[in-house]
Amino acid sequence: MPATGALHLAAEIGGPPRYDARSHVALARLAEEGALDYVTLADSFARPGPDALSVLARVAPDTKRIGLVPTVTTTHTEPFHVSSAVATLDWVSKGRAGWYVDVSATETEARLFGRRTAGPAAALWQEAGEVADAGARLWDSWEDDAEIRDAATGRFVDREKLHHVDFHGSTFSVRGPAIVPRPPQGRPVVVIDGTSDLAREPAARHADVVHVRAASAAQAAALRDDLRSRAAAYGRDPAGLKVLAALTVDLGDAETTPEPGLDSAPQRSGRESYFRGGPVDLAELITGWHRGGAVDGFHLTPIRPERDLERIVNGTVALLQHRSLFRTFHPGGTLREHLGLSRPASRYASARISGATS
């Protein structure tokens, strides 16, 4: 079925490890100039360099509109600390935070912590879904108006509007409430790569945005249909789940030697989907897949960030904007507003109000 919704675009701003944030700031600002929904910053325990979430907290004050989505690994980390850190990024960015949920599956990474051995992938993704669930509950544990800040009476918070979570997962439990007040977005945006079968279930149940890697529009459409069907089975509105095709792109000059595995059309290689061509070629592919109803948008990872992101923004995006296929400005101030997602109400506030009126 042809797509009628807005086209969404996002980009990765990582690349070789860097130990200062200047390049990340510059790339995020460039993406912001193109009105992209958000930028991601890849990370893992096996990757050298500063923590992605901390880097984007540094990027936040030097940007105004672009969404900021760091990779956050749920394995070997404390869910309570993860939720606090992501909520803090949402406050620092004034409502532009998301988090890209990932797992750590290697024994080498497990030894960095020394608390447990590497687990099977199915168990790790089950735990990741539980961390996402616990995080949402912790963000809900403060009602929006829980803070009083009444200097005259010395009351900072209304205790009746703080709630215990009492969440029990397969590997952890969390009581709460959170130590950070409810984030500006209510709940920061959850992003998961739902290409693999194991990740697809937590993606359908907990994600706001799902990345999928596909070599054709038909393959991408099948993945989106499957994700939305699973989301509906969990009682979610399937139309509220945004599915973006994830492509690693090389927009180098035609005379340059192609990167290994790249071609002029999307190709699958392991966990990656690659595209090699020019900015106009990429614009044509984005247009075709979106108009054909395959995806809600694209997440693009430049092979060479400084070169290729500039060509994405000033070439591909500019052409899409000229054709009135992509917006020329951000529609709001928060990442949820960029994505057309509503701000969720606190489940505990709703339950308290419902109990008071019943």
Rank of each mutant, 00 (worst) to 15 (best):
G5R: 07
A11H: 06
P16N: 13
D20L: 01
S23I: 01
H24S: 10
R29E: 11
A31R: 06
E32K: 09
A35K: 01
L36Q: 07
T40Q: 02
D43S: 06
A46S: 06
R47F: 03
G49M: 06
P50R: 10
P50E: 10
L53A: 00
L53T: 01
A60L: 01
A60R: 01
P61C: 14
K64T: 15
V69M: 09
T71A: 14
T71K: 01
T73Q: 12
H81A: 04
V82M: 11
V82Y: 08
S84Q: 11
S84N: 03
A87V: 02
A87G: 05
T88P: 09
T88K: 07
L89T: 06
W91M: 09
V92L: 09
W99R: 04
V101H: 03
T106D: 12
T106Y: 09
A110R: 13
T117K: 12
L124K: 06
W125L: 07
Q126D: 08
A132H: 01
W139T: 04
D140V: 07
E143H: 02
A151V: 15
G154H: 05
F156N: 13
R159E: 01
K161A: 00
K161Q: 02
H163C: 07
H164Q: 14
H164L: 15
H168D: 15
H168Q: 15
G169H: 08
R175I: 12
P177L: 05
A178I: 04
I179V: 14
V180D: 10
P181S: 02
Q185R: 12
D193R: 04
R200W: 08
E201S: 13
E201P: 12
A204G: 15
V209A: 12
V212C: 08
A220K: 08
A222R: 00
A222F: 00
A222T: 14
D225F: 08
D225W: 10
L227A: 09
A232I: 02
A233G: 15
Y234A: 14
G240T: 15
L244N: 02
A245R: 13
D250V: 09
A254G: 15
E255R: 09
P258E: 00
E259W: 07
P266A: 01
R268W: 13
S269M: 11
G270S: 11
F275M: 11
L285N: 03
G288I: 07
A294I: 11
G297N: 05
T301L: 03
I303R: 13
P305Q: 14
R307E: 03
R307I: 00
I312C: 04
V313C: 09
N314D: 01
V317G: 00
L320V: 00
Q321H: 10
S324V: 13
S324D: 15
F326D: 00
P331C: 06
R336F: 09
S342P: 14
P344E: 05
P344W: 03
R347M: 03
Y348E: 10
A349F: 07
A349H: 12
I353W: 03
